[in-house]
Design a protein around this nucleic acid. Sequence first.
DNA 1: AAGCGTATCAAACACTTGTTTGAATGTAAA
DNA 2: TTTACATTCAAACAAGTGTTTGATACGCTT
Lengths: 213, 213
Amino acid sequence: MIVKAETTAPSEQTRARLLDAAREVFSQHGFQNATVREICRRAKTNVASVNYHFGSKDGLLAEALNFAQLGALQLANVKTDERPEARLRSFIRDFMLMLLDEKTPSSQCQIMARELADPSPALDKIVREAIAPLHKFLGELVREIVGDKTSEAELRRCVHSILGQCLFYRHSHPVLQRLHPKLRYDHQEIDAIAGHIAGFSLEGIKYLAKKSG
Amino acid sequence: MIVKAETTAPSEQTRARLLDAAREVFSQHGFQNATVREICRRAKTNVASVNYHFGSKDGLLAEALNFAQLGALQLANVKTDERPEARLRSFIRDFMLMLLDEKTPSSQCQIMARELADPSPALDKIVREAIAPLHKFLGELVREIVGDKTSEAELRRCVHSILGQCLFYRHSHPVLQRLHPKLRYDHQEIDAIAGHIAGFSLEGIKYLAKKSG
DNA sequence: AAGCGTATCAAACACTTGTTTGAATGTAAA
DNA sequence: TTTACATTCAAACAAGTGTTTGATACGCTT
């Protein structure tokens, strides 16, 4: 059938399976602790396929990265005509969902979070394509709230405070699980956490605005 | 000379050298990425000595851990008769110094921070001896500020917000270094960061107290 | 000095890792 | 059918890991 020729070639299928499996394993175990064999097992293919299709484990990570979702989130947020406070609220909520949701995990964001603590050769690309834009976006958003009086250094520290709170729940997950075994990151809990972070941060930001202004 | 017999035996010396080197390497590279060979190189001893003196790499980590400094910090803080707001301020400052100071790095705290993201077999001990007490201490301190009205869940989230902000600077150091190459964690910069975190957090906490009260 | 237990060391071991190889397989054009 | 090419695979490779071994050196008692 001609149809088959128009769909993906067989080689493209294993490529896609490898990328899916790689995103899964990298986000769960981090780059260093993820093994090529585990990835290939999940992709139901041979160990050699990684090097055949992507050259190396590094190459696989580089191609598996795709921060379109995170970028789209920021773009949609900017396009809203809501007040900056509300935009910060909803961004934190969306971001926490990407970081924590057990059902629809954005493996991209989880990989990004992991890379912070344990850099891989792809860190430069990740910083350039995901982290730097994210800091820039949040910086501009906070700037709208605090006004022009606040210094760049203080503004940056606000961004760090927000990101630090968000990432804490991802980084410390194994520990928090032990401290509070009944904890589950369902939709409701994530909403509560995001609401707290937004409220907590907005007070800090507004205080800073008053102090500087 | 009899004196020599009263000082440490030669075997104790290499034990001590191993522990020192282990703390150094574990705090710099994390448990997984630290190699026994690197530790022994710095301790100027043979690879086999780790297993001879500590049984295994795990055993070495277990004995290298010592959270006395962190505990002493909390005890001294409680003993102060200052107001809780001031106590939170000074604790955050001391904690950030332990986490970031390039000159006197508290390898213990850096190991603890690393374990959050990348657990080792010693995580249980670390949670029990360092992290759980730390959360408890901060919880009680924040409770003094917010009063009895605030729920346990919200109180806990405040503690998470504080810790998240503090740990962010340690976890994200490689990334922040790339975003702001001129950044240095000297005493002055750490003071500024700690001051920001304390001010930022106190506003969030007080807001929560009002909201609940 | 001889004997004994501890501590150190170079070397090897067992295992895992990412990567490479060369043969086998499938696909499509000649 | 034959040929050429891309893909897949089992197996091996090379390097790094924590750990073990057996010999050697040291300090101390007898």
